[in-house]
Amino acid sequence: MKKLINDPADVVSEALLGMAAAHPELRIDHENKIIYRADAPVQGKVALVSGGGSGHEPLHGGFVGPGMLDAACAGEIFTSPVPEQVMAATRGVDGGAGVLHIVKNYTGDVMNFDMAAELAAAESGVEVVAVVTDDDVAVQDSLYTAGRRGVGVTVLVEKIAGAAAAEGRDLAAVADVARRVDAAGRSMGMALTSCTVPAAGRPTFDLPDDEIEIGIGIHGEPGRRRVPTAPAREVAEMLVEPILSDLDFTGGDGVLAFVNGMGGTPLLELYLMYNEVATILAKSGVTVVRSLVGPYITSLEMAGCSVTLLKLDEDMLRLWDAPVRTPGLRWGV
């Protein structure tokens, strides 16, 4: 195993030290491993809190800042943050208008965020609403979940709901936006290689050089099937077809197409994949009006990609275009 680390036990803590040094616009609670926007809590604004296991950067800490999250909790590698972390973040960002938890549908995340919300309400009277993302069409249930996994659409929920909060909508309205985005989004991923958790020191799963895994999760969970290595256009079809079969993306106000890198795939290949995805969508009568290409929800150094499609309405489109200023997404400011 070759990694740019010191001690595997200190990877998350030392990465947060680097994040603090690189981004003085953030405030980091190193004891609790929480990333805050520097001006939190913002009085009168609905606050957004998310988080999950580390190793998916820039998700979630890279999306803390004006227009997105108010705080993110960093669990250990591929491990949910504990309830005490989430509760501390929730209390730390509450500006009196309530707090929205954005939670990926993984059993540990859902359980720990639920516990934190109950504790925060009981001890501090904070009003908390949770929205769980579950956009992965690859599997209905998995080792980590009951129901579909929350993957690429999580980034889009954080951005669009964050914009809704920034313009002053109340907690019920911000939560409604988040639910609408989740309901209108679908994702599917694939892997060319496994990844290696630093503490384990070996690949999470074995994948022969002449095979690829279709339908993987962001922790290296198995997908739908393994198939022989194929050209990019065939891989794109394997990802896009199940998405289009699950939801009608024609009509409306167009689609946001998101081709995400899993951590070890260069942008050259991601843009090549985006071209293949866009070609399939055009032939299918799907109108793409916004795009996002890059490594935004990763799985350490796994090579591969995922495709997320979001069926936009006028409100979601306007909120997507709204200004955002975070380490991972920045425009309009």
Results as ranks from 00 to 15, higher is better:
114 D>H: 11
54 S>G: 06
34 I>E: 03
42 V>Q: 13
48 L>Y: 07
110 V>Y: 08
64 V>T: 06
76 E>Q: 15
113 F>H: 09
85 Q>G: 06
81 P>H: 03
64 V>E: 00
14 E>W: 08
103 V>G: 02
49 V>C: 05
110 V>Q: 11
105 N>H: 10
112 N>A: 00
117 A>N: 09
52 G>P: 01
59 L>P: 04
123 E>L: 14
73 C>H: 03
101 H>D: 08
82 V>M: 09
122 A>C: 13
59 L>A: 15
90 T>V: 11
116 A>R: 00
112 N>L: 06
49 V>E: 01
52 G>S: 11
108 G>E: 07
100 L>T: 09
83 P>N: 03
121 A>V: 12
33 K>P: 05
105 N>I: 04
55 G>D: 02
16 L>F: 02
70 D>I: 13
79 T>K: 05
66 P>L: 15
24 P>T: 05
108 G>D: 01
45 K>N: 12
66 P>I: 14
20 A>N: 01
73 C>I: 07
32 N>C: 14
69 L>I: 06
78 F>E: 08
113 F>Y: 07
63 F>H: 08
99 V>Q: 02
45 K>H: 15
15 A>H: 15
79 T>Q: 13
74 A>C: 13
82 V>W: 10
89 A>Q: 02
16 L>C: 04
21 A>I: 06
61 G>C: 02
58 P>L: 08
57 E>F: 04
26 L>G: 02
18 G>D: 09
122 A>L: 10
38 A>L: 13
105 N>W: 05
35 I>S: 07
124 S>D: 15
114 D>C: 06
124 S>Y: 15
76 E>P: 07
13 S>H: 14
116 A>P: 05
13 S>M: 14
98 G>Y: 08
23 H>Y: 15
